[in-house]
């Protein structure tokens, strides 16, 4: 070890080893990744509002709890149609002189992944209320409320976007809650989060680790469709219509006792799920949940039947075959 009795030799050797490895595992792969990477066809340049919204997303540290990466493993299938790839992040560049690039992939999923939140939950009304007070829409949520993106006013101006907040979550009951520009920008950013469709399926990585045991389980679930319907309802419907089916006054309509849900003819109910709904001015706009989430007839049937048999509803059960027929009808433009 004579060689290392010279401090210059010792520290330079260590430095050389470290720098070489650094080049090999970081700098060269990173440079090669950014040079051999490009935007996907169909990529839309973000609007100014979206850019401002992303800056707010970063400033408020949302990445601490929300990932934006869909891994090629089966458990991530709920977040998007396909696994993420390098090209999905190609549009991210350095923000400005002071701040680094932000791919916002994240390392923690304390809250849900947001890669496709623009597709999964496009409703601005939902996001407004949810940002103002998450627990007003999702009772069990632990997300922080963001009241500083809103202001309280006694009367509305013409351009004001009002948020219908249930009284119990208001600081002052006689005031109206109005979204500040920042809230609208942040929501514009969230609505812009979508996955670009790839039309050549062989170019897309498959989801790995499909659970063999689970297929058996799904067969078992067919015998117990109620549980499956409840889970699907929780995943796709509950954040607005709530687990008790009562919705939220002034924001999302109740399904409990709803004539549409209890109707013997399920056409309207299924059409709303597949195409969205904006017929009632007193409520928010419903997105095309079924189409956005790519639900199949069996899943729709499970959801519909869960709605028809819960909270005192006594609608007729709709078998998947009947759902399929209606879905085909909707698809063919009727």
């Amino acid at each position: 070890m004579e060689y290392f009795n010279d401090h210059r030799r010792l520290y330079l050797t260590a430095l050389a080893l470290f720098v070489t490895l650094t080049l090999l595992v970081v700098i060269i792969p990173a440079i090669s990744n950014q040079t051999n990477n490009g935007l996907l066809p169909g990529y839309e340049l973000p609007s100014d509002e979206v850019v401002a919204g992303k800056a707010l997303y970063i400033a408020n540290g949302c990445v601490a709890c929300h990932t934006q990466q869909v891994r090629d493993v089966a458990m991530d299938e709920v977040w998007a149609e396909r696994p993420g790839m390098a090209a999905d992040y190609a549009g991210n560049h350095r923000q400005d002189f002071w701040r680094n690039t932000a791919t916002l992939m994240g390392t923690e999923r304390t809250g849900p992944d947001l890669t496709t939140i623009g597709t999964r939950q496009p409703s601005r009304d939902w996001h407004l209320l949810h940002l103002y007070q998450p627990r007003a829409v999702v009772k069990e949520s632990i997300m922080p409320a963001h009241p500083w993106l809103f202001e309280e006013k006694e009367s509305l101006d013409l351009k004001d976007v009002e948020v219908t907040v249930p009284d119990e979550f208001k600081a002052h009951k006689n005031m109206k809650v109005v979204a500040k520009r920042e809230a609208l920008q942040l929501i514009a950013y969230l609505q812009s989060l979508k996955q670009i469709k790839i039309y050549n399926p062989s170019a897309v990585a498959k989801f790995l680790y499909k659970d063999e045991a689970k297929q058996g389980k799904e067969a078992g679930a067919a015998k117990n469709p109620g549980a499956k319907g409840q889970a699907l309802y929780a995943q796709h419907c509950q954040s607005c219509h709530q687990s008790n089916g009562e919705g939220l006054k002034g924001a999302f309509p109740p399904l409990k006792g709803s004539p549409i849900v209890n109707d013997d003819n399920p056409e309207l109910q299924i059409t709303i799920i597949m195409r969205g709904y904006d017929a009632k001015p007193e409520y928010g706009v419903m997105p095309a949940v079924g189409t956005n989430a790519n639900l199949n007839a069996e899943q729709i049937s499970a959801i519909v039947n869960h709605e028809r048999s819960s909270w005192g509803n006594k609608g007729r059960a709709i078998p998947p075959a009947e759902v399929q027929k209606i879905m085909d009808m909707i698809k063919n433009g009727k």
Binding site: H7, Y11, A14, L15, F18, V19, T22, V26, I27, P29, A30, I31, N33, Q34, N37, A86, Y89, A90, G91, N92, H93, R94, N100, T101, A102, T103, M105
Partner: peptide
């Protein structure tokens, strides 16, 4: 002493923007 040297290297690699476009940021 090596730890101090490496920490300086780290700061340089982590903060120089040349290799941090797109996924490069995440690799870094």
């Amino acid at each position: 002493v090596t730890a101090v040297i490496f920490a300086i290297v780290l700061t340089i690699v982590g903060y120089i923007p040349l290799w941090q476009d797109g996924l490069g940021e995440t690799i870094t």
